[in-house]
Design a protein around this nucleic acid. Structure first.
Lengths: 220, 220
DNA sequence: CACAGTAACCTACCACAAGTAGGCTACTAA
DNA sequence: TTAGTAGCCTACTTGTGGTAGGTTACTGTG
């Protein structure tokens, strides 16, 4: 009875107090953590508050996740995978290489537009938000990079040699960094539509990228 | 006497115990903080340890800097300004636009190579380092972006209209992001020489960049 | 020279948040 | 009925950013 009585009005709607199965609690905690990190940023979000919002005590959280960092990483990774899916899906709907890249880019920016809440934690800079996110941001970049490499290999047909692959990896990662940085800029210029962003970026990198694929296909 | 007696061997060489003028203490603290942040990362670096290394008590630090974040920001900003200077100097030594960009790029990567220690905090991802650096990293990107815009305006002669400037700002920031991300990759492939990195990146972005300047010069 | 004013510094503390030890409650299955 | 366990809690420890308030030594002025 102490248990039930200890839930005043700090309870988040949609979650009733009391015992729930482990899997459900996990999902609930992840959802709430996502929102909390988005609102406050990593540093300012406290595990106590997460516990309060979930209507649960702190050790419960630590029974599901090893640490605050691991919880954060899990949240970000989930979102990153969703993003990768969206982009991959959009890419698969086109066949011409440039059109594929364009479709992927648009999907990327549209996703950011939708998930702005959750994304701010990773990309906002204006407000001095804390973040232990380098590893996760990097993971996402790598994912986008892999996707690009895969796409290029698929359309060019030939496989580059070792040195070529090294260079290609470097360049796709650089491009992924450009996307990331552009997203950041976009955050302060939301009036620009995703399609225009994509076109700008395509005009910038496509000539060099096309040249690069030709170069790599010719060398081995 | 308590004062002098309280310095066992935790003292960093080159700094004698005892009272020193404010300006000297400030510089000393900044230098030590730079090293400490580089070693441990923002989160794991504690103010207590900084105090210990400086052979000083914590309030002394807070008499010089408002907070840990402000101290960190000051360190990073100092390094960022040094970087900008190096790049700008290198750029000024060339006249052909492409050669200028190349020279700037090489200077950029050379600087990272030298200052690797101090730079890890900002760019390393493999190790889960903490960082409250989004704002500072962004400031550095903006600096590089401004430099590029300046350089392009200088060489093209004409000034773009409002929409053109918006697009140009977005694209140069994207490019700065690409440099940043490439630096990160480089950290795991240090065998690639700076000149090669610069050439890779130039081959990738120069065609699009040249096209962009022409486009912007033609529209108004 | 005396001594006020101040610069540089200290000890001892607070607040707050991550993470833990150990125990309680209620469901389930034999 | 009762053993086992899943889910949960209260009450703590630890570590670290930051502060209050006092002490020491240097410096310029009567």
């Amino acid at each position: 009875m102490k248990f039930v009585a200890s839930f005043p009005d700090t309870l988040v709607k949609g979650y009733r107090p009391g015992r729930v199965p482990r899997a459900v609690r996990s999902e609930q905690l992840l959802d709430l953590a996502d929102r909390l990190f988005a609102e406050r940023g990593f540093h300012a979000a406290s595990m106590d508050e997460l516990a309060r919002r979930a209507g649960v005590s702190k050790p419960v959280i630590y029974d599901h996740f090893d640490s605050k960092e691991q919880l954060f990483a899990t949240c970000v990774r989930r979102t990153g995978e969703l993003l990768a899916d969206r982009v991959a899906t959009a890419v698969r709907e086109e066949s011409d290489p440039r059109a594929r890249l364009r479709a992927g880019s648009i999907a990327y920016f549209r996703f950011l537009q939708d998930q702005l809440q959750a994304w701010i934690v990773l990309f906002d800079d204006e407000e001095m938000r804390d973040a232990r996110f380098a590893a996760e941001a990097s993971r996402i970049r790598r994912r986008q990079s892999d996707l690009m490499i895969h796409l290029m290999a698929e359309t060019s047909g030939t496989a580059p040699d070792h040195e070529g692959r090294t260079r290609l990896e470097a360049m796709t990662l650089a491009i992924a960094g450009a996307y990331e940085s552009l997203s950041l800029w976009w955050h302060k210029h939301p009036e620009v539509p995703p399609e225009e962003l994509a076109d700008w970026l395509l005009d910038l990198i496509w000539p060099g990228l096309e040249q690069l694929t030709k170069h790599l296909a010719a060398s081995p």
